[in-house]
Design a protein around this nucleic acid. Sequence first.
DNA 1: GGCAGAATCCCATCTCTTCA
DNA 2: TGAAGAGATGGGATTCTGCC
Length: 304
Amino acid sequence: EIDRKDIRIGDTVLVQRAGDVIPEVVKVIEHKRTGTERKFSMPAHCPACGSPVTKPENEAVYRCLNLQCPAKIKESIRHFASRRAMDIEGLGDKLIDQLVDQGLVKNFADIYTLTKDQLASLDRMADKSAGNVLASIQKSKKAGLERLLYALGIRHVGEHTARILVQHFKSLNKLLQASRYDLLDIHEIGPEVSESIVQFFSDEKNRLLLQRLQEAGVSCEPAAPLAADTRLSGKTFVFTGTLKKMTRAEAEQLVVARGGRASGSVSKKTDFVVAGDDPGSKYEKARKLGVTILTEEDFLELLK
DNA sequence: GGCAGAATCCCATCTCTTCA
DNA sequence: TGAAGAGATGGGATTCTGCC
């Protein structure tokens, strides 16, 4: 995009809101150039740890390969604690920065060894906040295997794939023993994903990490009885707009708990689009494709 | 090889909670 | 009580996978 629009460091650019939120650079205002603007080139070394960065052929993203890179450790913990993963409320950016910078947390398992005194000694933290964070950490132990798998940050394993893996293997131990071929047998898992999963679990450090999490009391069992309610089995839902009685995440959970599937994008295979207030482009796409559109009330009625 | 679909990333702005 | 941090929000763009 930078090359295509010839955007240089120091340029003045025209920005517009694409969709509702996203700032999009439309073009460079060339007559504002002074001649001091510089071309951007991708750094050859990681700005956080100085290790060389690499970009595999056929991939788009440059990566730092240093496993001990502090920036990578922080990001992995951010992901681990995020709402859709282990949902550790109160463990946000600033707190993670402090925990990693002070050496209190070097990996996910260290989160579960934190004490109230350690937390309360940090900036903008006191007894109340430290207690809240600790309670949230305790609560996260019951998040269940699906969320844990997603939280680990295995490449190509998002929420959907984590769910598929749990439905297929039913336990962490069985997944740990799975071969590349076992994984390839599963619908929606291809060579890239299976390779990534096998690589992650064959790494001794990762196995040790999982062992420490288990010792800390983190549940490695599926969160809910699997497929107890299958009324929405085979049905795909997409949510758009703002719902009144629940968040979209909660609505998606209701679908999944009934054996259905919640997706982010509308396609011909979508069965229902549930439209809240101010629905976006997904609503229009659903209309064009002839997908059934439900109001929030219709959706709640359907759940009954 | 091409296409469809899924997953992920992007970030301004607001509200709420808690600290100092 | 002001300041600061966390969390919630949401659709387009991009990337990547899986399937035909």
